[in-house]
Amino acid sequence: MIRWGIAMAVVAACVGYLVYSASGGSSEYYLTVSELRAHSPTTGDVRVAGVVQDDVQRSDGGLHLRFTEKDGTASMLVDYSGTVPDIFRPGITVVADGRLGADGVFHARALLAKCPSRFSTTPYTS
């Protein structure tokens, strides 16, 4: 029983250390656009959720993208290069993963589109 306890304590300590060290280094803030505006500048990457506006400009055969992301009150210009999620289009919610540049443009390194999943097609209103 004592040995069982020791083994448990050792594994628990290792897991605790791993979780602590890994989450310290790689966790990111998850913000809305207005929260990003209010937030003091951070050094690391952040994820910003907002709604894609109608001004989407594509270039480079669709691999480069510039658009405005907006929530209730604030908006920001997002610049992104890479494959664009299939469901990306004005009106959907996207999560841009990257950082706000000195030019005021948000440079996204990844773009996650919220999957309008099978469980949420627009219901009929009758």
């Binding site: 060290s21 890994a22 990111e28 803030y29 998850y30 913000l31």
Partner: peptide
């Protein structure tokens, strides 16, 4: 403030 972790966290931990 809400924080999230990406694949790096899972790989490292």
């Amino acid at each position: 403030q809400q924080r999230v972790v990406g694949p790096t966290y899972y790989e490292r931990a």
